[in-house]
């Protein structure tokens, strides 16, 4: 039996900022249900179902391999270009799908937001959880493939992989929440999003190494939210020596993005139902 105290709620005007992690934790099952629903819906009425996870990165891999392999390979010291792009695209997929799904998540669940209360962060978290499921399938395949064909794994590989995922999610969560909240108010976000994702791809180290790009922009490029994570990720799949400055910059960078995103989201969420 639950005591009266457990269910005492006081509803008051919003005066101060709070994260309310406790409430989010109480609703962890709801996060699961949102992920579960989206996964179920995603592959309904598809013939090849979950195989779609592989098609996009593999197609992109083929395109970039044939287009850029000859010119980039001489600049690559630690990896074959095909493998470089493949590893890059797997992490990129986590980053980009997380951002775009999180950004759309609040608008596409607007009907629920307007009718039922629960901590709103459940929705973007679930969107990212969904991207994480696809990523798990891809990365496990990549790791198995690596172990079979091309064993570059070393003692720290799995630590690096974990670090890279955390760094990626920090940034994706921050950007995703920011865009999700803005999207409710300014529908422009929807149109800017594909462009933003493209920009992030071509300015990243997914398709070409940093030293292949113009060196004059190095400082700017070190601010790219995926750079630190990507460096750590590739170090896991090769013998490339780790550069702690890049990792540290990435961590600081992505933490700031994370905080900005979550702050903006929490600050505006009380009024989501009024503007959605």
């Amino acid at each position: 039996m639950v005591s009266e105290k457990d269910h005492y709620i006081e509803i008051k005007p919003i005066t101060h900022f709070s994260l309310n992690i406790r409430e989010l934790w109480q609703n962890r099952e709801l996060i699961y249900f949102f992920v579960w629903r989206d996964l179920k819906v995603k592959y309904k009425q598809t013939v090849i179902g979950v195989l779609w996870v592989f098609i996009q990165p593999l197609t992109l891999l083929a395109v970039f391999y044939f287009a850029l392999s000859k010119s980039i390979q001489p600049n690559l010291h630690w990896m074959n270009y095909g493998y470089f792009v493949l590893t890059g695209l797997v992490l990129w997929q986590l980053f980009s799908v997380s951002i775009s799904q999180a950004a759309e998540s609040m608008v596409s669940n607007a009907n629920i937001i307007k009718k039922i209360y629960f901590p709103r962060l459940v929705i973007p978290i679930a969107a990212i959880g969904n991207a994480l499921v696809d990523f798990t399938i891809m990365s496990v395949s990549l790791i198995i493939g690596t172990l079979i064909f091309n064993n570059h794994f070393h003692v720290f590989s799995f630590l690096y992989i974990l670090g890279a995922i955390i760094l990626t999610l920090l940034a994706a969560f921050g950007i995703g929440c920011l865009l999700a909240a803005m999207n409710l108010k300014f529908r422009d976000v929807r149109y800017a999003l594909p462009f933003l994702i493209q920009l992030l791809l071509f300015s990243s180290t997914v398709l070409y190494p940093l030293d292949f790009q113009d060196a004059s922009l190095n400082l700017l490029k070190s601010l790219h939210p995926l750079n630190g994570a990507m460096h750590l990720w590739r170090c896991a799949f090769s013998n490339e020596p780790i550069d702690f400055v890049t990792i540290f910059l990435g961590f600081v960078n992505n933490s700031i993005l994370f905080l900005i995103g979550i702050y903006y989201f929490r600050k505006t969420e009380a009024f989501f139902a009024d503007i959605a």
Binding site: I11, P13, I113, I116, Y117, A273
Partner: peptide, 23 residues
Amino acid sequence: ILSRITPPTTGSIKLRGRVASLL
């Protein structure tokens, strides 16, 4: 406001129990 979908501008509500809203 009772179901916490939107916050009040002023004032307060005390609820002593689990709430379900069917809007």
